[in-house]
C-alpha cells in the first residue's frame, strides 16, 4: 500500500469523507440512468455525477496532494473548470438531438399514416 502513512488527521478525515460521498453520488447518478423510465428523465441522472460527484473527488485529490507534498497542488482546478464549462454543452446538445429525432419520427409516422390513408381512399 503506497498511501502516505504520514498524512495528518486534519487532511485524512475530509479526504475520506469526500471520496465516500463522491463515490456514492456517482453510483446514484448511474443508478438513475439505468432505473428511470424514459429518455427525458434519464438525462437528469448523470447530471449529479458530473457536478457533485466529480467536484467531491477533485477536491479530495487537491487536499490529499497538498497535504502529502506540503505545497499547494491545485492543478485539479483545471479539470473542474473544464468539466463545469463542457458538461452543460454536452447535455444541451444531446437533449436537442433527442427532441429533433422524436419530432422527426412523429413527422414520418404522420406522413406514413396519411400516405396509406390516401392510397386506401384512391383504391
Amino acid at each position: 500500500m503506497s498511501i502516505a502513512e504520514t498524512l495528518p488527521v486534519w487532511a485524512a478525515l475530509p479526504v475520506a469523507f469526500l471520496l465516500v460521498l463522491g463515490g456514492l453520488i456517482s453510483l446514484i447518478g448511474a443508478l438513475g440512468l439505468l432505473r428511470l423510465g424514459n429518455f427525458y428523465q434519464r438525462i437528469h441522472g448523470p447530471a449529479i455525477t458530473v457536478t457533485l460527484g466529480a467536484g467531491c473527488i477533485l477536491i479530495a485529490s487537491m487536499i490529499y496532494f497538498t497535504a502529502t507534498q506540503s505545497r499547494l497542488v491545485i492543478h485539479e482546478l483545471l479539470i473542474s473548470v473544464f468539466v463545469l464549462m463542457t458538461a452543460p454543452v454536452v447535455a444541451m446538445m444531446i437533449m436537442r438531438a433527442a427532441v429533433y429525432r422524436d419530432l422527426r419520427k412523429e413527422h414520418l409516422a404522420d406522413e406514413e399514416k396519411t400516405g396509406t390513408d390516401g392510397a386506401a381512399t384512391d383504391a
Binding site: 488527521v9 485524512a12 465516500v20 456514492l24 448511474a30
Partner: peptide, 22 residues
C-alpha cells in the same frame, strides 16, 4: 488514519466501478 483512508478509497473505487457497470 492511513487504514481509514485506504478503506475509503477502496469503497469509492468499488462504487465507481459499479456505476460503470450500470
Amino acid at each position: 488514519t492511513a487504514s481509514l483512508l485506504s478503506a475509503a478509497i477502496v469503497f469509492a473505487l468499488v462504487c465507481v466501478v459499479l456505476a460503470m457497470i450500470l
